[in-house]
Design a protein around this nucleic acid. Structure first.
Lengths: 349, 349
DNA sequence: CTGAAAGCGCTTACAG
DNA sequence: CTGAAAGCGCTTACAG
């Protein structure tokens, strides 16, 4: 019962045709050192026998597994589906599989996750790092997806420009008093978004930043954000750095009897699933995850496959860390859903 | 430069100590055929040399890769993070890696995804099937996560019981007129949830099912659900089969000036991220994904590792399809967030 | 208790 | 154009 799952291997094809395994290998890989007729015959037999190459055999010989690792800061993050889907898609198009690893918990877990992937022999790793993490040299090609403010080579959405797009949109509806809602002042991504927003304030415009984390430290987790008070103070635009915070703001305002969008506007970031489902729909800005994933994977593949050309009998080895991608940033796109005219504000007692 | 990434392999350890690779292998795997002192010395040298076994070498020899596949109907699904995280966790605890595959698109893509995983030599696959899909024999151990109504061996949450828990909760607040909100009448999961809800209607209670998909076919995608009208008709409990639909209902009701929870109640399913963030918090019911993942992985591992005991020099082969898990269903847990007293209903003009 | 040998399936220089 | 040989790193009967 030495059969493989699909029931055939190179030697069997070779035996069937009375040729050598080397020739079968050459024919199938299309390296062209085999006569056209023989190659054709070999391909036919392979198809007939339902031959699927053993990636394990190949991996052992070539030193490459054809698998990429994907390390995520927290799989439970609602943005994760978009990222994972895009990476999965880009990777399979490039002929690679994707092994996931969740660095749930602290930074140490992230290191563990990376090490597990390396032990499994991945050819490269895509990392969405935990906040405040620098990815050290890990002896394997790495592409980092983060904010452009992260030091080192990264691919990312242009969060700054996304922030600008949102504020330009809101300003065009005559908003002048903006509450910029973030969660964590230590996040590069959030700071980029807020920086971009601030850089596009209209003449006479004013913006305050509201950090939920700080607020909750004072008032308890899950407490109301006190947005009703903000409305009283004259804020009419609530621009969150994430759809999750926007949703929180939207429902809190609605609950307080503030009309969205006729009294105030609420905007988000990332175009998560629910943005299009809530009433009113959430105006937001989305990353081009497909483009980001393509850049990350392409950079990785370039580094990985560059090693191939070293003409050596011995499997090539990845020499030290190779950071990929060279700092690309991909524009974000505005998604308009709250289409009302200028907000009137509202007098709350 | 025949070095592996970590710079050492079995033979190097063997050479360093002047013993055979076989002995090193035996010592390290703790099969106990080596004297205690030698084993200790070998372990020390291995640690010193930073030895990490090549999983590829082992895989080629043993026929097992130590990798499991995870096939998801649509990674973009908001429930996905919970599932992926739980599977990843259970799998790594069992010593397995997880290769993802998105069967985005149609059923054909699902088949492709499965085949890609098999080509990569996964030892088993966890599948969350696309709606209406039967997983055929695929020559590799499979665990299916779906609803208990799915034919064949599956692991799943007890969606029926979850539905009961929700209605019991609502009924205890004196609700009598329920609108059960689903999306797709062809979904086993949704039908189980709704069936459970119906089975627990209080005396004199009444329930209508509202299918969003049907509604949107008539009124266009993203159209209002007309819940204001339902409130006029006396419905006070809006029980959705997913938090996503609950969120849609909640915001639409709020926007229509209906107070939640003092006039009507809204409940969801799955405890997705935003349930705890909206105002008012969403009462919902959650699956024990950790338990489900544990069962799925344990079943897979049992089948995979059972093959080991066949004492043969030749790597063992998975014989035909082995469906795992034997129809387990795991209770769901109520998460109460809207804690108000009996709803008053509301008169809308 | 320990070692020599075979072999998992593949690919790549090298020789013919 | 084709083949014989070596070897990637490991594990497992088998012999000593």
């Amino acid at each position: 019962m030495a059969t493989t799952r699909t029931g055939s291997n190179l030697s069997q094809i070779a035996a069937t045709l009375g040729v050598s395994a080397a020739t079968v290998s050459n024919a199938l890989s299309g390296k062209g050192r085999v006569s056209a007729e023989l190659a054709e015959k070999i391909r036919a037999t392979a198809a007939e026998l339902g031959y699927t190459p053993s990636l394990t055999g190949r991996a052992l010989r070539t030193g490459r597994t054809g698998v990429l690792g994907l390390v995520l800061p927290d799989i439970a993050n609602p943005l994760f589906p978009q990222i994972a889907q895009a990476i999965d898609y880009a990777a399979s198009n490039a002929g690679y599989g994707v092994l996931i690893a969740d660095s749930r918990g602290d930074v140490a877990t992230q290191t563990d996750a990376i090490n597990r992937l390396i032990e499994r022999g991945v050819d490269g790793i895509v990392i969405v790092p935990r906040r405040g993490t620098r990815i050290a040299d890990i002896g394997c090609p790495v592409a980092v997806i983060d904010s452009p403010s992260t030091p080192g080579n990264t691919v990312s959405a242009d969060h700054w420009q996304g922030g600008q797009a949102i504020i330009e949109h809101l300003a065009s509806f005559q908003h002048r008093k903006f509450l910029l809602i973030g969660n964590n002042p230590a996040s590069n991504v959030q700071n980029d978004r807020i920086g971009g927003m601030r850089s596009r304030l209209p003449e006479g415009g004013h913006a305050d930043v509201f950090w939920i984390e700080n607020h909750e430290q004072r008032h308890g987790k899950g407490s109301l954000l006190g947005l009703r008070e903000k409305v009283k103070q004259g804020f009419t635009a609530f621009a969150a750095v994430s759809d999750l915070h926007a949703l929180r703001a939207l429902t809190e305002l609605q609950r307080a009897g503030v009309g969205v969008p006729e009294h105030v506007s609420v905007t988000g970031f990332d175009d998560l699933v629910w943005s299009s489902v809530v009433t009113p729909g959430l105006t937001t800005v989305r990353m081009d995850m497909a483009a980001i994933a393509d850049i990350a994977i392409a950079a990785l593949v370039r580094v990985i496959e560059a090693d191939t050309t070293s003409g050596s009998d011995i499997p090539r080895t990845v020499a030290g860390t190779v950071a990929a991608a060279d700092r690309s940033s991909v524009p974000m796109q505005l998604v308009v859903r709250q289409t009302s005219g200028p907000p009137t504000g509202i007098i709350l007692s």
